[in-house]
Structure formats: C-alpha cells, structure tokens
Design a protein around this nucleic acid. Structure first.
Length: 761
DNA sequence: TATTTTGGTCTTTTT
DNA sequence: GACCAAAATA
C-alpha cells in the first residue's frame, strides 16, 4: 500500500527540498492584511473566523506553505485536518502549487482518514488488529439489527435506525459504553440502550471491525491509555491546522486538544454562520470554547468577501441577521465602491413543482445562450428527493448535468457484492461479507444452513468461515449443502492463494467470473441487469489503478465522496449540504417553502435551534453564488401521491426587498388572481389566512381544487404510441390494460407502467 | 429452497 | 408509488 504517512521519520533524509525563500514570496503579498495576519500568526493558538467567500482556503493553504517556506517545520511535522476528502485533495494540490512536492509528506486528510493511519499503526496496543475493516452505514445497521434481534428487542417499537442514531451521537461525544451514564437516549429500547451499545461494540471487536465513529473513539482511547503514543504524536506535530472548525464534534475536539496540548500551535478556521452539521454531532460550541480552552488565542476575523456581488451579500447578511445565536460578523464586499452592485436576486413563485423545474431549466438555457458556461451553474436543493423533478426536466430538454451526492458507486448492490468477495478473501474473518455472498449467486444455501453455521460459530466463538470449514467435517448438514459449502470454501482458498501473484483487477475479474456472479446478472432479465454488469466492468477497470487489494479496500471504506466523477460538462445538481465550500457564477435555490425549507422534521425535533441551522443552510446557499441567485417556490407540490399546497418559506420574507426582484405567476394564493402586492405579501397572506402565528400541517387541497389539475388522461393512449417516462426514457406502447401500459423502452427494455407516469412524446 | 405476495415505511442533511 | 422486509406459496 502506498502510504506517505508511514514514511515517517526515516524519509526525512530523502524528503524533497523546499524551494528556499528569502524575500516574502509573491503569494504572501497577494493577501489582504487580515489574511496575512492569519498566515503569519504561526505560533500559539489562533482562531480564524472566516465568513463565506473571504478566502478561508487560501489562508489555510498559504499558511501551510508559509510554515514550510520558513522552515519552521518539516512537512511531516504538520497536521492539517479537513472534513471531506475533496477538501483534503484540494488543499494538497494548492499547497503543492506553492511549495512543490514537499506537500506530499504533510499529514493531511480527514479526521477519519488520519485516525485510520494512527490506528493501523498503534491500534494493537488497545486490542485492535492492524488489519481491521471499516464498516459502512449499511453494515452497521445490519449488525445492530442482528444484535437487537438476539436480545429480543421489538424491532417495530424500537427501530434499529433509532438506536444507531443514539449510539452514533454518543460516539460523536467521545463516550464509550462504560462512560455513557445518564446521557440522552439511554432510555431507548426500554432503557436497554447502553447494554445494547456494549454488545454492539463487543461484536465489532470480534469481527475485527470499526464503524466510522469508532475511528475517532478508539483513537481517543489509544491516546488516553497509551501516553507514550500520545507523546510521540504531540512531539511530531509542530503545527496543527483545522478547516471547517465549526463542524467538529466533541470527539474531534478532544482529539485535537490532546494532540496540541504541549505545543499549542493550533490554528482553527471556521464560520459559525456555516455550521450545518449539528445533526451529526457537530458543536458550534467548539468555537466559543476555543477562547476558554486557549486563553492566549489570537482571534482573527476575515470579513472581506471576494466572491459575491454586493446585492447577494446584502441578501445573505439580512437573512442570517435573523439568527440570534451567532458570534456576529459583517461581510463586506471587497470590490471597490465603483463596482457594480450586481443583479438582484430573482424570486419566482410558480404553480407546482413541475413548473418550477421548467422555469429553472428555461432560465438555464437562456443563460447558456447568453454565453454562460454550464459548469458555472448549480441547482441546490434542501433534500435529495427534490432532485428528481429537475433531472426529469434536464433530460427532456437535453441540458447536460451531473448529480453530486446521489447514490454512490460503492454503495450499489452489485459493487458491494463484488467488494464482499474481495473482503472474504482478504479478511476471512469478515462475517458480514461472508454472509452477504455465500448464497449469491444462488447456491442452494438457505436460511437453515446459514443458521447452523451461525450457531456453531457462536458456540466455538469463531468466524463464520472457520465454522463452515469445521461444519463440513461433520454430518450435521444435508449432503447437498455440505458439498456446496465445501466447493465454495475450496474456491475461496484457491483465490486466496492466487491473490499475491495476480493484479487486483485480474483477480477480481476472475473471481466474479468463476463464482458465477457475472453469470447471475447475465441471466437476469430485469431492465437494470445490463447496467449492473456495466458497473461491474467499471469496477474492475477502476481496480487497475491499485497495486494491492488491501489498499483498494481502504480507499473504498473511507472515500465515500463521489465528487471524483467525470469532469463532465454540465450544470451541477446537489444538496445544500454538499455545496458547502463550493462556488458558482449562478445558483438556483428552488423549493423555498415552509416544511420543505425550513425542513419540517428538523423544526419538529430541534425547534428554534434547528430553525437557525436551516437559516444557516439558506445562508450557505446564497453565498455560493458569485453573480446571480434565483430563488423559487411552488404553491402546490405532490408529496407521496397527494397534492399539498404550500406556503412560501419564511426565509423569503427575510430577504431585503431592495435586493430582490419578484416575478411570480399570478393567482397562486389569493382568490380571483387579483393583484399581489409583492413578494412579501405572499408570506403574510399565506400565513394570516392559515391563522397568524400558528404553524400548521400542510393543508390538503380540497375537492374543488382537484378539478384544476390536468390529470384526466385515462387510457388516452393507443398501441404504438411513442411516450416518454421520467426514469426509463422513450418507448413504444405494446399493450394497454386499462390504465396500465406495457411499454418497450429504447434503453430500459420492456416495462409495465401506469399511464400517469408517461407523457406523449 | 426459491419465488411471489403482502404490508409497512418513506423524504433531511453525511465522514 | 417505490422500496424493502417478512410471510405465504410453489
């Protein structure tokens, strides 16, 4: 495995030389005074409060480069922590651009990735084998379900997901089972949450596995129980830097504090107004706490915004000013007074979601005609399900787009299966992987057989693989099942023996072929089968870049980012959360309606605090834009299968009037379609009619409103008609049965579809 | 054992 | 309506 961090000290002799610097390099002079202060304040604790678009990343990368250029530390004596793999990669690239190959040796990565490095190296000291596996969310849930089942927890009453969330939150706060105490959530599952947590941790340990939270948790335990390891890292890291500090949770904070205790050279960069991950355990309090824990800390504010037009900044600032819980920063435009104030925020109310999508895409096409590059346009939605309508419209109009944060490649069923095969070979103790593929493809090994193996494994406390091997020596199984398992185990042994001699890609291709897994999909006549085969091919191709399977497996478990997608030309469609840290010329913010944004469930759960987080999310959305923002809301939306009417988001009325230009369809809310006083009238009108100040569940449109909807197309199709379906594309109708159409799609094959899901093409 | 049928849930955001 | 899991049936 290529692991730059393992090079450690022995590499120091051959470490790449840093370009010597005498005078301040040009990249220092390009900074404004505050930025420069943040870069040059190298020693001691520093907190940089950095508003959106104020050059936060630039400060961090320059600071890192500055430390190197000043020769205050060797590259491997610097620790830089980011939140996403994308940010880590970007920072490495930018530092490399400033100081050259020395950037390679810096300890730079996400909290999780860095913890893995440390645990692989020293985990043995706290009983974690160095080849532990990392479980993804799916595995975690499956495991927890098993445990809850074994403990007779009613899964209807206490869903595993709930307990998972509780456990996750404890881990976010650095709490091992023995230290949970009477924390929130311990009453889950009739007060058995803590023993279940313990059982889950025990199980993980026997599986030689960690979940995401464990990576930090175990690392903390390691530091606390093995002081000499902690000392080693404290000594090693002369300088520590943290990006997106407002998103750190308690465990991460403790981790940082332990590492920086002696030298105190910690620099955190963050923006309390962009804290949008509290649901994942992030504590904005960490920012406030910084000055308490590091009384000597310098606090530097970056308030000059280089990204957005004054108009956009004004809109964003007015909005966020409605939050009470903030440190208070004023964003100023960095452009001179003579610069244009920029186009107003365009606000549009439309009849329903489809029309919203139509409007957005129309505007996009207009921008494209005007010479705007599509890669500079983004649609940012609150939640994933909102993306569908836009995708549909983008497909029909042929505007190229890419989705970030959709179903990820490594999470697809067939890919997970393929990975499970590799895991079984590489880590024979991996019960989850074993279980996943023993009977895939179908080998006639059903529940009863698996159950028996399980029992034996538990009785002898061995892995499933081991138990299976022992079991075929007995006559406990039906001869048929026994033979199948024997063959399977022989296959595994053979593949394992070849693993060292073959390239990973070759090996994987062989396994998928010989196991019959490929064949299984070839025989499958379902429309998605070809796609799955295609994915498998892609998977094998992707493996060609790897020298070892171990390295690849590590990558898979940590890199859940799917931003590495092709650099396609096209607009970007993603959630607001995924958009943090990015910027675009033009940003579309659809779905600004009560209950969608701010999200209803968030409000129900977290009240005022959550409302403020939603508002920060809106702030993040607005500040992604350099030049143009489009905000829209629909009066009606189809949720599940029913129409609901909706009220414009309260955030709309929090935008300053002078920065907004409204252009809505007439007659959305009032009777008679008569004059709307303007955009602010929307929110007022809607709310007051529903009863001022009372938050209501979405109202169903009453019977009469249904007549408005143009949906009465029952069997207006004929055999041979060409139609369009949002998911399957174009096709020809082959058969009609009432409202059910049998359609041969050009791409997706033959499918039965309700007529309401297609439109004439 | 494998396949079909039924019934429940679903839409917050992710390393 | 889609998707998943568990139950019913071949």
């Amino acid at each position: 495995m290529s692991d730059p961090f393992e090079l450690g000290d022995e590499v120091s002799a051959k470490a790449p030389e840093i370009t010597p610097v005498s005078a301040p390099p040009s990249w220092l002079e390009a900074l404004n005074p505050e930025q420069r202060a943040a870069v040059e304040a190298v020693d001691g604790p520093v907190l940089v409060l950095s508003g959106a678009g104020t050059g936060k990343t630039r400060v961090l990368t320059t600071r890192l480069a500055y430390i190197l250029a000043q020769r205050r530390a060797k590259p491997w004596q610097i620790l830089a922590v980011t939140f996403t793999n994308r940010a880590a990669r970007e920072m490495r690239e930018r530092v490399a651009a400033l100081v050259g190959p020395a950037a390679e040796a810096v300890w730079l990565g996400t909290f999780h990735a860095l913890c893995v490095r440390i645990l692989r190296r020293h985990g043995e000291l706290i009983g974690i084998k160095s080849n532990f596996t990392i479980l993804d969310a799916d595995d975690q849930l499956r495991l927890l379900k098993q445990i809850m089942e074994a403990n007779d927890v009613d899964s209807k009453k206490w869903p595993a997901q709930g307990l998972m969330a509780v456990i996750q939150r404890w881990k976010d706060r650095g709490l091992t089972p023995d230290r949970v105490g009477r924390e929130g959530g311990s009453d889950y599952a009739a007060g058995r949450a803590i023993p279940l947590y313990q059982a889950y941790q025990d199980r993980l340990r026997t599986l030689n596995a960690c979940d995401f939270g464990d990576l930090l948790l175990h690392c903390l335990t390691l530091f606390q129980k093995q002081p000499e390891v902690l000392t080693e890292y404290q000594t090693r890291f002369h300088y520590v830097m943290v990006d997106e500090y407002q998103d750190t949770n308690v465990a991460q904070y403790l981790w940082l504090r332990l590492l920086t205790q002696t030298r105190q050279n910690l620099c955190c960069v963050g923006d309390d107004d962009q804290s949008i991950y509290s649901w994942r355990g992030a504590e904005v309090g960490n920012i406030l706490r910084f000055e308490t824990d590091f009384p000597e800390a310098k606090v530097i504010r970056l308030e000059r915004n280089y990204r957005s037009t004054p108009t956009i900044l004004s809109a964003a600032s007015h909005l966020i000013a409605h939050n009470e819980d903030r440190l208070g920063k004023t964003l100023r435009t960095a452009h001179g007074k003579d610069s244009e104030s920029g186009a107003p925020v365009k606000l549009r109310g439309v009849w329903d979601g489809q029309e919203e999508a139509r409007w957005v895409v129309d505007e996009i096409e207009a921008l494209q005609t005007g010479g705007q590059k599509l890669t500079e346009i983004a649609i940012l939605v609150r939640a994933g399900f909102q993306m569908l309508e836009f995708e549909e419209r983008l497909i029909t109009t042929g505007v190229p787009y890419r989705v970030i944060g959709g179903p990820r490649f490594y999470e697809r069923m067939e890919i997970r299966d393929a990975i499970a095969y590799l895991r079984v070979i590489f880590q024979p103790d991996d019960d989850l992987a074993f279980e996943r593929i023993v009977n895939k493809p179908k080998r006639g090994l059903g529940q009863t057989t698996i159950q028996k193996i399980h029992l034996l494994a538990r009785a002898q406390s061995t892995s499933l693989m081991e138990a299976a091997m022992r079991m075929i020596e007995t006559d406990e199984l039906r001869p048929q099942a026994r033979n199948t398992i024997r063959e399977l185990i022989t296959d595994f042994a053979r593949w394992r023996s070849l693993a060292d001699a073959m390239a990973p890609a070759e090996l994987a291709a062989m396994i998928l072929e010989e196991s019959g897994y490929i064949e299984m999909w070839q025989r499958d006549k379902s429309p998605e089968a070809p796609g799955r085969l295609e994915n498998l091919r892609e998977f094998v191709t992707g493996l060609e870049e790897w020298d070892t399977i171990a390295g690849f497996l590590e990558h898979v478990s940590l890199v859940m980012d799917n931003d590495a997608q092709s650099t396609d030309e096209g607009i970007t469609l993603m959630t607001l959360h995924a958009a943090k840290g990015l910027e675009f010329d033009t940003v579309f913010l659809p779905g600004w309606e009560e209950d969608i944004f701010p999200n209803r469930r968030a409000l129900d759960e977290g009240g005022q605090k959550s409302l403020e987080e939603e508002r920060r999310l809106a702030y993040v959305g607005l500040t992604r834009a350099r030049r143009r923002v489009f905000v829209s809301f629909a009066a009606n939306r189809r949720v599940y299968n029913q129409w609901q009417s909706s009220i414009p988001s309260r955030f709309i009325s929090e935008l300053p009037k002078e920065a907004v230009e409204e252009e809505s369809d007439a007659g959305l809310y009032g009777q008679g379609g008569g004059g709307f006083g303007g955009w602010s009238g929307f929110a007022d009108g809607g709310v007051s009619r529903a009863g001022a100040g009372v938050r209501r569940a979405p109202r169903m449109i009453d019977g009469e409103s249904y007549t408005i909807l143009p949906r009465d197309t029952a069997s207006s199709y004929e055999l041979g008609d060409r139609v369009f379906h949002q998911k399957f594309g174009y096709g020809i109708i082959e058969d009609i049965d009432g409202t059910k159409l049998d359609i041969a799609f050009e791409k997706a094959g033959r499918k039965k579809v309700l007529d309401s899901f297609v439109q004439p093409a």
